[in-house]
């Protein structure tokens, strides 16, 4: 039995560049139905499509933390979205083992009219954590966030710092097997960021796995065990964090 928790095989994501292949009104849709019947070419031709990801194969073992680096538009976030099941791949497949907590954005699903307390339960459920588990960890979540005085205030009255701290605290306590993190560790003030970092560190040490996207190389050196460098949607280099991939990338 292997200990691979994320197995990505030849993954690709294609987008059509022109709107012609993505009709937006009923009229153009109906028209395209007629046209399609005649030309029998529903797929855009090569110069009208764009591969945000192509032939990506990666593996993450249990307890590892894979950092994705690359310039804007290199496909890092697309890869995280596919692994989080937000968008489907156009080719290839990925196998994900265990419960995933995706932190692509802090506070997704927070409702401004609800109190901090109500949002903790709602957000926890959206991240796949049963209510009884949240109830058990409730004090830890509140402690971590440091907003206990405002727990019964609607979050629309929160300062932005309080908001992200509470949101991050929920996400940090849902007890997933795999964390998928997109640049969200940089929330709150310095003290809170320190807290987040050490929390992710402890989570990893307890045998959980993670994929993180970050432009912060110091943070990557601190957290990641492996690094994958993406360029124009392809894996350009991959290896343990000591292997020099980071140095190549930053050079």
């Amino acid at each position: 039995m292997s200990d691979i928790v994320i197995d990505i095989e030849d993954l690709g994501k294609r987008y059509a560049l022109s709107r012609r292949h993505r009709p937006d009104s009923l009229k153009s849709w109906l028209r395209s139905l007629v046209r399609q019947a005649r030309t029998t070419s529903p797929h855009p031709s090569a110069d009208e499509e764009f591969w945000a990801l192509k032939n990506v194969s990666l593996q993450v073992r249990q307890g590892e933390c894979l950092a994705l680096v690359g310039r804007n538009g290199s496909g890092k976030s697309t890869l995280l979205k596919i692994l989080s099941r937000i968008i489907p791949p156009s080719q290839g497949r990925a196998r994900v083992r265990g419960r995933v907590a995706s932190l692509l954005e802090v506070g997704t699903g927070f409702h401004p009219e609800l109190t901090g307390r109500e949002n903790i339960y709602l957000n926890g459920a959206m991240l796949g954590c049963p209510e009884r588990d949240i109830r058990r960890r409730f004090d830890a979540i509140v402690d971590f966030s440091g907003v206990e005085r405002f727990l019964d205030t609607p979050v629309k009255h929160y300062s932005s710092g309080m908001y992200v701290r509470l949101a991050y605290s929920v996400a940090a306590h849902v007890d997933a097997d795999i964390l998928i993190i997109d640049e969200v560790l940089a929330v709150g003030d310095g003290e809170f960021q320190q807290k987040c970092l050490s929390h992710v560190g402890t989570t990893l040490a307890s045998g959980k796995s993670a994929i993180v996207v970050s432009h912060d190389l110091a943070l990557i050196r601190l957290l990641a065990s492996h690094v994958a460098w993406l360029r124009e949607g392809r894996v350009c280099e991959v290896g343990p964090v000591e292997s020099g991939v980071l140095e190549c990338y930053s050079a």
């Binding site: 928790v5 489907p88 990925a94 196998r95 994900v96 083992r97 265990g98 419960r99 995933v100």
Partner: peptide, 8 residues
Amino acid sequence: LPARTVLI
């Protein structure tokens, strides 16, 4: 190791 595997 968690038992549940999701195929994407």
